[in-house]
Amino acid sequence: MAPNREKIILKIENMTVRYGPIFALKKVNLKIAQGEIVVLIGSNGAGKSTLLKSIIGLEKPTEGHIIYQEKEISLWGPDHITRFGIFLIPEDGGIFRTLTVEENLQLGAYHFFSQYQERIEVVIKLFPVLKERLKQVAGTLSGGEQRVLAFGKALMSNSRILMLDEPSIGLSPKYIVQIFETIQALNQRGYTILLAEQNVIQASKYANRIYVLENGQIVLNGNASDLRNHPRIKEAYFGS
C-alpha cells in the first residue's frame, strides 16, 4: 500500500523520558503517516526500545505528547492503547510459551473476542504453518515459527500500527529475509509499520523513512532512499 503522506496517524512531540537524572529520550519528535514503514535505527542503548515502550504506554513520558489519530495517548495504559489500534511485538516475540498456539492467538484477540473466528481465518490464510500447530505448546515451536506466531497474534488484535522491536535478532539470514518480506506483506495489507532495528542493511531496503537515534535523541531523519547514501549512515552502518 502506498503511504498516504498527508495523513499523519502517529505524532510524537518533544517527548522526554527520564529515569531519575538519566535521560532515556530527550525532546524526541517523530511523525508516521498512514501506510508507511518507518525504521528507527541506533546502537544498543540509543533509546529505540524506550521509544516503542512509551508509545505503547509501558513508559510514561516526563514531558511531551504522543498523539494517535488526533488523540493524546501519552497517559493511557497499554490495554487501552492496544485496544485503540497500536500493537508492539517485543524483541522476544511476546508469545506465551506455556500456552498453546491457539490460546496465544485467542489472547491476541483479547479485546475483540467476538470477531475471533473471522480473524483466525485471515491469520491462518496468511501464515498456514500456524494451522498445523494450533494445539502445540508455543514454547516448543522453532525460533522462526515463534516469530510467525508473534505476527499472527498481532494481527488478531485490532491494530493499525504494528511496532516491532528488533524482529530479526537471533534469526538466521534465511529467516531474516522472510521476516522482512512478511513485514512488507503486512504493510501492503494496510498496516503502518514502526520498526526498531539494528540490521540497517535489511531494514533500509523496506523502509519509507528512517529515524536515527543516538543517546536518546533523533539525530537524523528523512526518506530511506536519501538516508541510505548519507555519509553518517554509511560510515556508522555500512562500513564505508
Binding site: 505503547i56 509501558l58 495504559g77 497499554p78 490495554d79 492503547i81 492496544t82 485496544r83 500493537f87 508492539l88 517485543p90 511476546g94 508469545i95 506465551f96 510459551r97 506455556t98 500456552l99 490460546e103 489472547l107 491476541g108 483479547y110 479485546h111 497474534k153 488484535s157
Partner: peptide, 16 residues
C-alpha cells in the same frame, strides 16, 4: 495463565 507466565508480556498484550 498469561499473567501467571509473564506479567510484563501480558501487559504488553493489552490484558487489563
Amino acid at each position: 495463565r498469561a499473567i501467571a507466565e509473564n506479567i510484563s508480556k501480558a501487559r504488553l498484550q493489552g490484558i487489563p
